[in-house]
């Protein structure tokens, strides 16, 4: 018990207490000075009627749709191509994972310098071909796509290494048996590899959904949620109502809604994880 105590104290103080405070706040009208008038579910009702908030929910979902399938499929393809013990594969794995270790601020800085129309790499290239540079981050149609692109560049390493880890668990003799059964390369992929890592595919999907649902830094730094709210996700909404407008109750309510959404996905993850044992 003595060994567990120090951590448990922090766990309660820094996780459980703030969580409880957040939930309590979500039922109050709090502001900078901490005035707490109990308002019941009013914050939640307001949120569900707030077009900006609903827009952020849609933006977040749209972003997840843009990134998660691409990340999963690209990660899987890379893992399949790089699951070998050659120097080349090792170097490639290193490159694809490298960007994942950068902080969000460095990543966005890099990509703004690529995407800005005046002097960005994209602009320089466009000019070289005599085309008009596109304002990727300033155009409603392009802004979210650009953020998704940045995110894929940043995060491709994660699904790749998860799939690589799974591929290494597939027993080699399965392939040997299939080769003796005269199976073609594509048949091996669909009849052996994919079923063997199906659990990981599901897991990667869930992990990525949870991760990308929490989109925050990229739009905050690259577009500030604009143009015209087109890139404002839920977390940015929480941040702004909390720390720009100091509507702490309102922000907390939005945070609880996000928590509920994530918890639902996490439940799916838990189901997948525990299925391993029953096998």
């Amino acid at each position: 018990m003595l060994f567990v105590m120090p951590y448990l104290c922090l766990f309660i103080l820094m996780l459980i207490v703030p969580l409880a405070m957040g939930i309590r706040l979500s039922f109050t009208r709090g502001d900078l000075f901490g005035i707490k008038e109990f308002v019941g579910l009013e914050n939640y009702a307001r949120l569900l009627a707030d077009p900006v908030f609903l827009r952020t929910v849609w933006n977040t979902v749209y972003f997840v749709i843009l990134t998660v399938p691409s990340l999963t499929i690209a990660g899987l393809l890379l893992a399949l191509a790089l699951n070998r013990e050659t120097r080349w594969a090792a170097i490639m794995r290193g490159i694809f994972f490298a960007s994942f270790v950068l902080s969000v601020t460095v990543v966005t800085l890099i990509w703004r310098l690529v995407l800005i129309p005046n002097g960005g790499l994209a602009g320089v290239i466009a000019k070289a071909f005599g085309a008009e540079p596109i304002s990727f981050l300033g155009d409603q149609n392009w802004a979210m796509l650009s953020i998704a692109m940045t995110t894929i560049w940043w995060g491709i390493g994660l699904p790749m290494v998860l799939f690589l880890a799974a591929l290494q668990q597939v027993p080699r003799d399965l392939y040997e048996a299939a080769a003796l059964d005269n199976a073609s390369r594509s048949r091996m992929l669909f009849a052996i590899t994919l079923p063997a890592i199906s659990r990981t595919i599901a897991l990667v999907l869930v992990i990525e959904i949870i991760l990308q649902f929490q989109l925050f830094g990229q739009p905050q730094l690259m577009t500030s949620g604009g143009p015209n709210n087109s890139t404002r996700p839920i977390v940015l909404f929480i941040y702004e109502s909390g720390w720009s407008q100091w509507q702490l109750g309102y922000a907390s309510a939005a945070a609880q809604i996000l928590f509920a959404l994530i918890a639902m996905v996490a439940m799916v993850q838990y189901r997948i994880s525990s299925r391993k044992e029953s096998r």
Binding site: M14, L15, V17, P18, L19, A20, M21, G22, L25, I210, Q214, V235, I238, G242, L248, A251, S252, A255, Q256, L258, F259, I262
Partner: peptide, 8 residues
């Protein structure tokens, strides 16, 4: 998630 506790 961090979002649920950061305000608290």
């Amino acid at each position: 998630p961090e979002q649920a506790v950061i305000i608290g």
